[in-house]
Amino acid sequence: MERQWTANPPFIGSNPIAASNYFRLVNMNRIPLAIRLSLLVVAILMFVSGYIWGNPIVIWQKAATICLECIGIG
């Protein structure tokens, strides 16, 4: 059976169980391209902002020394 988005989700103002059932029925493949693209843009922004405003040296410091846990020693 074809699963469709409905214009008015039945759970609005209702209980969480109804909400979870609704999301189980919603076909994720029908999420509009605009939303999918927006998620991609958000991820790119997270990546860029993380590396600009964060401290990538944190990653380098760990990666540039032998990780004893990773090799099964520590």
Binding site: R36, L40, W53, N55
Partner: peptide, 19 residues
């Protein structure tokens, strides 16, 4: 800063995933 760079690594992973 560690928290923000975590955002960067997760953003890196999600970029591939969402693409």
């Amino acid at each position: 800063p560690d928290s923000i760079i975590l955002l960067g690594v997760i953003g890196f992973l999600l970029t591939f995933g969402f693409l």
